[in-house]
């Protein structure tokens, strides 16, 4: 009985948390996008002295990078050398 009550309460809390979780995730994603923009600003024409080093991170974030350039409104990868799609 107590377990069932706990389960119902947990389901109820999850119901309430959907919009909250979405909002937090959206804000985190926006922060990530800004971070990626800082790493790869060279690609959009903003000079970045550490681009040579940040580019080394690229293979590790290929999938993330693909989602990012799609969100930024670029259908294809802006990198001519390395393409993810």
């Amino acid at each position: 009985m107590l377990d069932q009550m706990k389960k119902i309460l947990q389901l109820y809390e999850e119901m309430l948390e959907i919009p909250h979780r979405q909002e937090i995730a959206r804000e985190l994603r926006n922060e990530d996008d800004v971070f990626l923009l800082l790493l790869y600003s060279e690609m959009v024409g903003i000079p970045n002295p550490v681009f040579y080093y940040t580019l080394e991170l690229y293979p590790f974030m290929l999938e993330k990078f693909h989602d990012w350039h799609l969100r930024m409104g670029m259908e294809k990868s802006p990198l001519s050398g390395i393409r993810c799609c």
Binding site: L11, E14, M15, I18, Q22, D67
Partner: peptide, 20 residues
């Protein structure tokens, strides 16, 4: 699935969210 808009959700939870 992106963890934001597209998230598989338990049907009871989703019903509650939809109803409210």
């Amino acid at each position: 699935k992106d963890g934001i808009d597209f998230v598989p959700t338990n049907k009871f939870v989703l019903w509650g969210h939809h109803f409210t």
